[in-house]
Design a protein around this nucleic acid. Structure first.
Length: 291
DNA sequence: CATGCGTGGAC
DNA sequence: TGTCCAAGCAT
């Protein structure tokens, strides 16, 4: 009553999308960069940026040597730009502490900025081909349905989710890595959040959700994230101004992006605190490192 | 454990 | 011109 490793890995070999960071020969650094970019950002928007980053910063030390301003501009509109700064910080730590080699050990990876439970295990599994349970939103949904027979996954629980995924993995390292990738791919392309394509599912016959009659999700409602009018929108508008200028700007250039002064000031302050914006000695504003 | 953190595409 | 969702993380 759960997805079979052989069935799923054979499906993956035939049907998986040809994503560039999955190509044989991709460096662990390339895998790490892809994983950070893919946190909450769709594949289609990540692909072009990933190619640019790999050409420009092929090793961690190269990214570490770049200015935050250059990194933030290259990040562009992938969203959540703090990820870009943390990736640069992680690259510096890798360059200095690990001889420019991305660690393969989960606990060592977890100690790096911006790398959490998912990303650490994804690097171990996909770059180093380890038997290491990888749990993202796709895997949680696939397990909720195919194993537990529920309509969707409830709130995340790292310990329980890892145990669920671990139980599905075969003993062999390489096969387990393929299985982890296959579970993610299944959730991303077939066992989707809305309108799952069950007719195309390789594990249809082993799916507990099917056998339960596809019950609707009954757990706690996940809160929907608003965007319009939030600080996230205002921060994005402020950063947009600074990404597009080559020299520091007076505050008046920032003031025009949002009419409510209180919120605008709060957002600018938080960007300064986050290290996403810098104020020059003459009181102008710029991306950090833009003088 | 709940929130806040960007952005844009698909319905 | 609304809602949901997308390979999470830090606090």
């Amino acid at each position: 009553m759960s997805p079979d490793a052989r069935v799923l890995t054979e499906w993956f070999a035939k049907r998986a999308r040809p994503l560039p960071w999955r190509e044989p020969g991709t460096s662990a650094w390339g895998v790490l960069v892809s994983e950070i970019m893919l946190q909450q950002t769709p594949v289609a928007r990540v692909e072009p940026s990933w190619h640019e980053w790999m050409a420009r910063w092929p090793v961690p030390s190269a990214l570490a040597a770049a200015s935050p301003a250059d990194v933030l501009r290259a990040w562009g509109k992938l969203g959540y730009p703090r990820r870009a700064l943390r990736l640069r910080d992680a690259a510096a730590a890798i360059a200095i502490t690990h001889n420019d080699v991305v660690p393969s050990d989960v606990d060592t990876l977890l100690a790096l900025p911006g790398i959490g439970a998912y990303t650490a295990r994804a690097v171990a599994a996909f770059a180093y081909r380890k038997r290491c349970p990888v749990v993202d939103t796709n895997v949680r949904r696939v397990i909720a349905r195919s194993v537990h027979g529920a309509g969707d996954s409830g709130p995340a629980s790292t310990t329980r989710d890892l145990a669920d995924a671990d139980a599905l993995l075969p003993a062999d390292d390489e096969l387990a890595a393929q299985m982890s990738a296959a579970l993610m791919e299944l959730g991303a392309t077939v066992c989707t959040a809305r309108n799952p394509r069950c007719a195309d599912c390789p594990v249809f016959d082993d799916c507990a959700w099917q056998q339960n009659g596809r019950p609707a999700y009954t757990g706690p409602v996940k809160p929907v994230q608003k965007f319009a009018g939030t600080d996230r929108q205002v921060r994005g508008l402020l950063l947009d101004v600074l990404r597009d200028t080559s020299s520091p700007v007076p505050k008046s250039r920032l003031d025009v992006v949002w009419s409510e002064a209180g919120q605008r000031e709060r957002c600018l302050d938080s960007l300064l605190v986050d290290g996403l914006v810098e104020q020059t000695t003459d009181g102008l504003f710029a991306l950090p490192g833009d003088q």
